[in-house]
Amino acid sequence: MNDTLVKTVFFNVPPATVWRFLTDKDKLGTWFHPARKDLAEGEAFECYQTSETGETSRHIWGEVLTADAPHRLVHTFEIPAFSGVATTVEWVLEPIPSGTRLTLTHTGVARAMGDAALPMLMALDAGWEEHFALLRPAAMAQAA
C-alpha cells in the first residue's frame, strides 16, 4: 500500500513568511490549530483545541525533528486515533521567482491507523467531521 501523501502548493510570499505560518504558535492557529509554543528543533509540540467551555485539549502533537529555517521542517504527527504510533510530516520550502513552493510529505498514515478504523471514526469531533464530509465524494468516486 502506498503510505505516503505528497502535496505541493504555491505561495506568492517568500519562504520566510510561509515558515512563520508553519512554526509560530499563533500563526498556526490561523490555518491549523494553535500550538502551546513555537515549534523548535528537538522539542515536542502540541496543537490544541478549545472546547465550548473554554477548556483546551491536545489535538495533534509530536516532536520537531528538524527545523532548518526557512527551508525544511520535519516533525512527527500524532493524533489520539494513532494510539501512540507516530507518523511523519515533512515540509520543504523552496524559493521560486514568484514566491515559495511548499511541499508536504506525510508518511506512515495507513500503518499508524492499523485496525483503528472504528476508534478513529468515534474520535471524529467537529473539526474532523468537516474533513470526513470532504472524504465522502472522494470515496464515492473511488467506489464507483
Binding site: M1, L5, K7, V109, M113, M120, H131, L135, A138, A139
Partner: peptide, 11 residues
C-alpha cells in the same frame, strides 16, 4: 476508512 484519502482531504 481509506486513511490515505482521509488525510489527503485533511491536508
Amino acid at each position: 476508512a481509506d486513511w490515505i484519502s482521509y488525510f489527503s482531504q485533511f491536508w
